[in-house]
Amino acid sequence: MKIFEFAYFGLASLLVLLGGLATVAARNPIRGAMGLLTSIVGIAGLYLMLSAEFLAAIQILVYAGAVVILFLFVIMLLGPSATSPRDARTAVPRYVGAGVFAASSIGALALVASAAKPGARVVPEAPEALGTIEALGHELFTKGIVPFELSGALLLVAVIGAVAVARGKQVDPTLLPAGAGSPDGRDQVPVRDAATPDPQPGALTGHFTLSTKEPKS
């Protein structure tokens, strides 16, 4: 492997790893979406190394140009500070699941390391149709038609669920009392009864008291 190819592979892998860590560890959902975008760009770069130019283009157009935009759209609907209520009862199952996942990953790596035989292996040459539109379309719409349709249905359900959650989070401001938006009352807006007509332009508004007493001299 040439130095340029090694450097390119290292850069793409670094983008994937850093983007994945930023996606998982970021508290701000917008930063998490940007981390996902970084990881997607790194994966597209790895596709280019495998001579799969079509997959790299689809990775950028579909995932970076559509899925990440969809995530940002959902974040805009819910608000960047929207968080789920904390429930201490779900902490133990989460920790148990994380432990099982870590143990499974370590076991899989151990099996791969034990199955690897010493000595160099000759990798067979890739077929000429690898990464082309014809080969990908044949695999996608023959052997992978069911997963393809299921992924489309999953995205549709995700969009519908995001819209339903966003509609449930919204509050009609006309139903709120005056000054409900701020605790100090600086944003209070006087509420006028709908039955009271609007004052005419130039008319005096307020409360007046009529008195019949004569002023003292």
Rank of each mutant, 00 (worst) to 15 (best):
P127L: 04
A115Q: 15
S104G: 14
A108K: 09
A129N: 11
P124L: 00
S114L: 10
L111C: 11
R121L: 11
G119M: 09
G97P: 04
K117G: 08
P127Y: 05
A103N: 03
P93S: 01
A120F: 11
A113V: 01
R94Q: 03
P127T: 01
G107M: 06
E134S: 13
A129D: 13
A129T: 08
V112Y: 04
R121N: 00
A91G: 01
A115E: 10
A126F: 03
A115T: 10
A116M: 07
E134D: 15
S104Y: 03
A113Y: 09
G97N: 11
Y95C: 03
G131P: 06
G131L: 04
A108Q: 11
V92H: 10
L130H: 02
A102R: 02
A102K: 02
E125M: 10
A129G: 07
V122N: 15
A108V: 08
E125T: 07
V123T: 04
R94S: 02
A135W: 06
A102C: 08
A135I: 03
P93E: 00
A102M: 09
Y95T: 02
S114E: 12
E128D: 06
L111Q: 15
V96C: 05
P124R: 05
G97F: 09
A110I: 08
E128I: 06
A126D: 04
F101G: 12
A135S: 15
V100E: 01
G119T: 13
A120L: 13
E125Y: 00
K117W: 08
I133T: 13
L109G: 13
P93H: 01
E125P: 07
A135Q: 15
V112K: 05
A135R: 08
V92D: 00
P124W: 04
G107L: 13
E128G: 00
A103T: 11
A98I: 00
K117E: 00
S105N: 10
V100Q: 01
L130T: 04
A116N: 03
R94Y: 07
A108S: 14
E125W: 02
G131N: 02
S105Y: 14
A102L: 13
V112R: 15
G107S: 14
S114V: 00
P93W: 08
